[in-house]
Lab assay of single mutants.
Amino acid sequence: NKFNKEQQWATYEILNLPNLNEEQRKAFIDSLKDDPSQSANLLAEAKKLNDAQA
């Protein structure tokens, strides 16, 4: 299913963002699990935070 693929991709991407700390990473991944339909939005937020902390 589409959300499952998006969720897996977003999880992979978030795990590989270098500037997030473990707590932030875990929070994003927990949110992905809670609502896979928000995968794209959550990934965008994670990338923004990652860039802000660069």
Results as ranks from 00 to 15, higher is better:
N41M: 12
E6Y: 08
N4Y: 10
I14Y: 01
F28K: 00
Q24P: 00
N16H: 10
N19A: 11
K2W: 06
Q8W: 11
L42I: 15
D51T: 09
A10I: 10
N50E: 02
K33S: 12
D51G: 08
A40H: 12
R25W: 02
K26I: 08
L15Q: 14
E45W: 07
L32G: 01
S31E: 09
K2V: 13
N1Q: 05
S37P: 04
S39R: 06
D51F: 08
N1K: 02
T11F: 15
P36H: 04
D51M: 09
N21A: 09
K26P: 00
E22P: 12
T11Q: 15
K2Y: 06
A54D: 09
W9H: 15
S37G: 10
A52G: 07
E6N: 04
D34T: 12
K33L: 09
E45F: 06
Q24I: 03
L32E: 00
N1L: 04
E22F: 07
D30G: 09
Q24Y: 02
P18V: 09
N19I: 01
L15D: 06
W9T: 07
A46D: 01
K33N: 14
A52F: 13
R25P: 00
A54S: 12
E13K: 05
K48A: 03
D34G: 10
K33G: 07
A52M: 13
D30W: 06
E13M: 12
A10Y: 11
K47N: 11
W9M: 15
L43I: 08
L17H: 02
P18F: 04
E45I: 12
K47P: 00
E22N: 09
K33R: 14
P36A: 08
A46L: 01
P18E: 09
D34A: 14
D35K: 10
R25N: 01
S37Q: 10
Q53M: 09
L20D: 00
I29S: 03
K26G: 08
L49D: 03
L42F: 09
F28E: 00
S31I: 08
L32S: 02
N4W: 14
E13T: 09
A27G: 13
S31P: 02
L42Y: 10
E45S: 07
E13P: 02
Q24E: 04
I14R: 00
E6G: 04
L49I: 10
T11V: 12
K48S: 08
K2P: 15
K2N: 15
A40T: 11
D30K: 09
S31H: 11
N4P: 05
N1H: 13
S31K: 14
Q8L: 15
L15W: 08
L42P: 00
R25S: 04
E13I: 13
N41T: 11
A10K: 02
L15M: 13
Q7P: 04
N41G: 10
S37W: 06
N41L: 04
S37E: 14
A40I: 11
A27Y: 15
Q24N: 02
K26R: 05
N50G: 02
K5G: 07
Q7F: 11
N21H: 12
A40D: 08
A46S: 02
Q38T: 06
A44S: 11
K5Y: 07
S39F: 15
L42S: 03
L17R: 00
K26M: 14
N50S: 10
S39Q: 05
L15Y: 08
N16P: 01
D34L: 14
K48H: 11
L17S: 01
A54T: 10
E23Q: 13
L15R: 06
A40W: 10
Q8K: 09
Q24K: 02
W9G: 04
P36R: 02
W9R: 09
K5I: 05
K47I: 13
A54H: 12
T11H: 15
I14S: 01
Q24R: 01
A54M: 11
Q7A: 10
Q7K: 03
N4F: 11
L42D: 01
I14M: 06
A10P: 02
L15E: 14
K48T: 09
K2A: 15
E45L: 05
N21L: 11
L42R: 06
A27V: 11
W9K: 11
L20A: 00
Y12R: 07
F3D: 15
A54V: 10
Q7S: 05
P18Q: 08
I29Y: 04
L20F: 01
A44N: 12
L43V: 14
N19D: 06
S39P: 03
Q38S: 09
L15F: 04
E22H: 09
Q53D: 03
D30Q: 13
S39W: 15
F28G: 00
A40P: 05
K26H: 12
N16E: 07
Q53N: 09
E45M: 09
L32H: 01
A54I: 10
E45D: 07
A44Y: 06
W9S: 07
L15K: 07
A54Y: 06
A44I: 13
N19H: 13
A10M: 05
Q8M: 14
E23N: 11
N21Y: 13
K47E: 07
K47H: 08
L49S: 03
L49G: 01
A10F: 11
N50H: 02
K48M: 12
K47W: 11
N50Q: 02
S37A: 08
K5S: 12
I29Q: 04
D35T: 07
I14V: 05
S37K: 10
E6V: 05
A44D: 12
A54F: 08
E23I: 08
A40F: 10
S39A: 14
N4G: 09
F3K: 02
A10H: 07
P36L: 04
